[in-house]
Design a protein around this nucleic acid. Structure first.
Lengths: 214, 214
DNA sequence: GGCAACACTGTACAGTGTGCAATATCGAAC
DNA sequence: GTTCGATATTGCACACTGTACAGTGTTGCC
């Protein structure tokens, strides 16, 4: 194994790790591009193709970094299984909302990185400890992933750089015609808060209730 | 109102409706671009800016068209509130998976079109009929939207042009090391089916259970 | 008929990801 | 120690993308 100990040719000036790290740094402020990362590294764009097959590979690596940044250890500890899931979910939501376009990355490629697998394993453990069968635990795991990523992505689209408060206030100010949409008008004060962590926790809670009842 | 009955200047050769319609046609096969739609209409790309402020406006319009194509009337009728939600949700999922990149459109702009409002109103009615308060009905409505869009987007990323069967088979073939990820390995036969309608219905069912319990 | 508003075009710019051929650099074999 | 082949990096180029700006010609109104 690892027969390629030394190879001819010039030394590599970079590493895949380094590229992904620079992309993460660059991520505060703008969604990273091949050319942007290369510029930051003081290198021509093509150079990156020595380390990555294409842009999708960079995105996959970023996805896995983001999952790790949310701290999968939150899924461990002595708290109840629900608390642990909620804590990691909220942490991941925060991580995804901090960087513009972060949530959207999860939709360009399948999640098969090592951290994705780790998080999956731990979620399975939690649902199993809650009494679910292996099959149901798997389904519940995916349901939670879908909720966190879907929620974060939609909220990221609505925020678009603004703060949560600004968006809620802007939505509050919208006038709904009670003739056309009576129920929407009646519930609008709640609907205006769809992009808040309160809403996030409410729906996650409902989802976990439904999963636990299986 | 509508004081602009007639205006000077040449007749318009197109309409916003027409642009959105050709974009939808073009959508089978490739994700529509300003230049692509213009070419299909036999017109320079800039011409579209007479009718639309920017690409985001086109995407918003497409989102609303997709919501309508899923047939919001499925939310009406005599079936139980759960059946009606499940039927529309599955229909929307199918619509979004039929066109590549359709699901991703929902993440570029807020959903505030007329059909989005209509669907929201009808979901509120269903949850209200299920006994939820206006506030809880609003939260449950968003939870369902998040699930449908999140699930469709993740599945679209995994499918990437392939059929559901192909993806499931490819995932089944993956070998998970039971030493590293015992639970993942044990539940993998189910995990391989995450992108199926069966999984979609399972998690939607769980979510609705949790919402109804409020 | 002149005026002002308007639709549309030509051209252009600043981006994006990425393929290809040339160049420079190294390790290993002779 | 020289040659050879593998390799990293570059310059250049291509095919895209959205969209800004300055014409150019058509039209309704006074």
């Amino acid at each position: 194994m690892e027969e390629k100990t030394t190879r001819p040719g010039p030394k590599r000036s970079l590493s895949a790790e380094q590229i992904v790290t620079t992309a993460m740094d660059l991520f505060d402020g703008e969604t990273p591009s091949i050319r942007g990362v290369a510029a930051r590294l003081g290198v021509r764009p093509n150079t990156l193709y020595t380390y990555l097959p294409d842009r999708a590979a960079l995105e996959r690596a970023l996805v896995d970094r983001l999952l790790a940044e949310a701290d999968p250890d939150l899924l461990l500890g002595r708290r109840s299984w629900r608390r642990r899931i909620e804590d990691y979910a909220c942490s991941l939501r925060t991580v995804l909302l901090r960087r513009r376009g972060a949530a959207a990355l999860f939709h360009s490629a399948p999640m098969d990185g090592p951290n994705a697998m780790l998080v999956g394993e731990r979620l399975l453990a939690l649902f199993t400890s809650a009494g679910l069968s292996p099959s149901d635990a798997s389904r519940a795991t995916y349901a939670v992933i879908v909720h966190v990523l879907g929620s974060a992505t939609l909220t990221a689209a609505d925020l678009d750089g603004h703060t949560e408060e600004e968006v809620v206030a802007a939505r509050q100010a919208v006038q709904i015609d009670p003739e056309l949409l009576p129920l929407t008008a009646a519930a609008w004060s709640t609907t205006a808060t769809w992009n808040t962590e309160t809403q996030f926790r409410w729906s996650l809670h409902a989802l976990l209730d439904g999963c636990a009842a299986r």
